[in-house]
Lab assay of single mutants.
Amino acid sequence: MPVRRGHVAPQNTFLDTIIRKFEGQSRKFIIANARVENCAVIYCNDGFCELCGYSRAEVMQRPCTCDFLHGPRTQRRAAAQIAQALLGAEERKVEIAFYRKDGSCFLCLVDVVPVKNEDGAVIMFILNFEVVMEKDMVGSPAHDTNHRGPPTSWLAPGRAKTFRLKLPALLALTARESSVRSGGAGGAGAPGAVVVDVDLTPAAPSSESLALDEVTAMDNHVAGLGPAEERRALVGPGSPPRSAPGQLPSPRAHSLNPDASGSSCSLARTRSRESCASVRRASSADDIEAMRAGVLPPPPRHASTGAMHPLRSGLLNSTSDSDLVRYRTISKIPQITLNFVDLKGDPFLASPTSDREIIAPKIKERTHNVTEKVTQVLSLGADVLPEYKLQAPRIHRWTILHYSPFKAVWDWLILLLVIYTAVFTPYSAAFLLKETEEGPPATECGYACQPLAVVDLIVDIMFIVDILINFRTTYVNANEEVVSHPGRIAVHYFKGWFLIDMVAAIPFDLLI
């Protein structure tokens, strides 16, 4: 008679799926529990143990900040960024110097990925580790590398530091407007667009060049630039800015003055950032001319202004700041037409079709709590990747769950009947059967004279019903998954307890 339990259901295979997918890609990662103190490590794979030199037993239950890997060259700011990422709910990448158990130093890129439950609360953290440099290539500990984003994938490793954006290309926007319009339909740009040429040739750093990471940081200074100062900065030398009595002219307006920039070969870094931020506020060169004239017309309804409409929906549905990093990277690809469009465009503009998908598509409701890094690593669709929660398995109709209350009560009843059979069957065979043979035949009273025979008949009927119930009862397979398919249940029961239950259900007393 089957006594099969499996009270692990309803099970959740999400954690096993993450481990299996990460292991298949030869990654070095740990999984931490966000619900406990210090976000203790609950799993670390073999790749991480080989990377740091510690065994799994030495890593388990330690804080996922990996303070046991810190050393003299470990930056405090990087460690603080990892700790801050564990307090938030967004994906974050941090470069930090770690030390192995043998004392060797290596520069590592740590990717902190939160995993949320159905309520939107962070319950786990996945920390992925990628070695960037070994100890002989690690720089000085005073050099802070965590304020910069990861290198873009479309640049060669040897040319990542030679990417320079020439400031004269930004200063000569109005001069290039006529050349853009003359391109017409034969050019790649839309009317009114501004073409910015980027020099990728390796050259020595000069005062006129600005690194790509500095251009990325310009967006942080746009908020500090007032509207009046932006307007004066875009007017140009024809209309000098008016300053109040006793007030000095704005240095932001002076930063885009061609006369002032041409007199000296070098520009201050602050002026460069502010000038680029001011130019980015204009949607095209037409807006710059309109600002000089004193009238700013409404933005025209053409394809170039609607190019950012799908980007707005993608940004609203993005799951991490990696989408913004990807957008900034692609927006700086050289030799393309940049349409400086305000994100607050007309909502009635139709979304044009684009061959290049900048932001990841909208994630469906079932995966809105899973970050983009987890979705990318697992390579699963929205119909396959579940949320991290207890999910009731989908069972067929008329199927009994093996952990249901009805099955528990039924098993206790069958257990009592088995005990009765084990006690009274030998007793009936030894004593009652002998008395029946010696006594007179009682054929007239039937079952009324033999109450134990009636009980034995009921017990046999219950055993037959138990066999039928076992054909529709779920079970737990070797992978700790609840199986509810009727065919698989029948095959599993035939290979197991079916023969024993059938022999126990045969009414031998009635056959004798």
Score class of each variant (00 low, 15 high):
residue 2 P to I: 02
residue 4 R to K: 15
residue 4 R to W: 12
residue 7 H to C: 07
residue 11 Q to V: 13
residue 12 N to R: 14
residue 13 T to G: 13
residue 14 F to K: 08
residue 20 R to F: 05
residue 23 E to N: 06
residue 23 E to F: 01
residue 24 G to C: 09
residue 28 K to C: 14
residue 28 K to L: 04
residue 28 K to N: 15
residue 28 K to I: 09
residue 30 I to E: 01
residue 38 N to I: 01
residue 41 V to L: 04
residue 42 I to E: 01
residue 43 Y to V: 01
residue 43 Y to A: 01
residue 46 D to Y: 05
residue 47 G to F: 03
residue 47 G to P: 01
residue 52 C to H: 01
residue 58 E to D: 05
residue 60 M to R: 01
residue 61 Q to W: 08
residue 62 R to A: 09
residue 63 P to S: 15
residue 63 P to I: 01
residue 64 C to Q: 01
residue 69 L to Y: 01
residue 71 G to V: 01
residue 72 P to I: 01
residue 73 R to K: 12
residue 73 R to H: 05
residue 75 Q to F: 01
residue 75 Q to P: 05
residue 76 R to F: 12
residue 77 R to K: 07
residue 78 A to P: 05
residue 78 A to W: 01
residue 78 A to N: 10
residue 80 A to P: 01
residue 82 I to V: 11
residue 84 Q to I: 05
residue 85 A to V: 01
residue 85 A to N: 01
residue 86 L to E: 01
residue 86 L to P: 01
residue 87 L to V: 14
residue 88 G to T: 14
residue 89 A to M: 14
residue 90 E to T: 08
residue 94 V to C: 14
residue 96 I to H: 01
residue 98 F to I: 05
residue 102 D to A: 01
residue 103 G to W: 01
residue 105 C to S: 14
residue 108 C to I: 01
residue 108 C to R: 01
residue 109 L to P: 01
residue 113 V to P: 01
residue 121 A to Y: 10
residue 122 V to C: 09
residue 129 F to K: 01
residue 129 F to I: 01
residue 132 V to P: 15
residue 132 V to L: 06
residue 133 M to D: 06
residue 133 M to Q: 06
residue 137 M to F: 15
residue 137 M to I: 07
residue 138 V to E: 15
residue 139 G to L: 13
residue 142 A to L: 08
residue 143 H to T: 11
residue 146 N to W: 15
residue 146 N to L: 15
residue 147 H to L: 11
residue 148 R to A: 08
residue 149 G to L: 11
residue 152 T to I: 06
residue 152 T to Y: 15
residue 154 W to Y: 07
residue 156 A to F: 15
residue 159 R to Y: 11
residue 160 A to L: 13
residue 160 A to M: 11
residue 163 F to I: 06
residue 164 R to H: 08
residue 164 R to K: 13
residue 172 A to T: 07
residue 176 R to F: 03
residue 176 R to H: 06
residue 185 A to Q: 05
residue 186 G to S: 11
residue 189 G to N: 15
residue 189 G to C: 10
residue 193 A to I: 01
residue 194 V to P: 01
residue 195 V to M: 03
residue 196 V to P: 01
residue 198 V to T: 06
residue 202 P to Y: 01
residue 204 A to T: 15
residue 205 P to D: 12
residue 206 S to C: 15
residue 207 S to E: 08
residue 208 E to V: 06
residue 209 S to Q: 05
residue 209 S to E: 08
residue 209 S to T: 15
residue 209 S to M: 05
residue 210 L to K: 01
residue 214 E to C: 09
residue 215 V to Y: 12
residue 218 M to Y: 13
residue 220 N to M: 07
residue 221 H to M: 15
residue 227 P to M: 13
residue 228 A to P: 14
residue 228 A to C: 05
residue 236 G to N: 03
residue 239 S to N: 14
residue 239 S to K: 12
residue 240 P to A: 15
residue 241 P to F: 15
residue 249 P to H: 13
residue 253 A to F: 13
residue 254 H to T: 14
residue 256 L to Y: 06
residue 258 P to A: 14
residue 259 D to G: 07
residue 261 S to M: 10
residue 265 C to T: 09
residue 268 A to Q: 15
residue 268 A to D: 03
residue 269 R to Q: 04
residue 270 T to N: 14
residue 273 R to V: 12
residue 275 S to E: 12
residue 275 S to P: 14
residue 278 S to N: 08
residue 279 V to H: 12
residue 283 S to A: 08
residue 285 A to K: 07
residue 285 A to H: 10
residue 286 D to H: 15
residue 287 D to L: 12
residue 288 I to F: 14
residue 288 I to Q: 04
residue 293 A to G: 10
residue 293 A to F: 15
residue 295 V to S: 12
residue 297 P to L: 09
residue 299 P to C: 12
residue 300 P to Y: 15
residue 301 R to V: 14
residue 302 H to T: 06
residue 303 A to F: 14
residue 303 A to R: 06
residue 303 A to W: 14
residue 305 T to P: 12
residue 305 T to C: 07
residue 306 G to V: 07
residue 310 P to W: 10
residue 311 L to C: 05
residue 313 S to C: 14
residue 314 G to A: 12
residue 318 S to R: 12
residue 318 S to Y: 10
residue 319 T to R: 05
residue 322 S to M: 07
residue 323 D to Q: 08
residue 324 L to Y: 13
residue 325 V to E: 10
residue 325 V to C: 08
residue 326 R to W: 05
residue 327 Y to A: 12
residue 328 R to E: 15
residue 331 S to F: 04
residue 331 S to V: 01
residue 332 K to Y: 04
residue 334 P to M: 01
residue 336 I to A: 15
residue 336 I to E: 07
residue 337 T to M: 14
residue 338 L to G: 12
residue 339 N to R: 02
residue 340 F to P: 09
residue 342 D to V: 01
residue 343 L to F: 13
residue 345 G to Q: 08
residue 348 F to C: 08
residue 349 L to Q: 05
residue 350 A to P: 11
residue 351 S to C: 13
residue 352 P to S: 10
residue 356 R to N: 11
residue 356 R to A: 05
residue 358 I to H: 11
residue 360 A to L: 12
residue 361 P to I: 09
residue 362 K to Q: 07
residue 362 K to Y: 11
residue 364 K to F: 06
residue 364 K to P: 04
residue 366 R to C: 04
residue 367 T to P: 12
residue 367 T to K: 07
residue 369 N to K: 15
residue 370 V to N: 04
residue 373 K to S: 04
residue 375 T to M: 04
residue 376 Q to M: 03
residue 379 S to L: 07
residue 380 L to N: 04
residue 385 L to W: 07
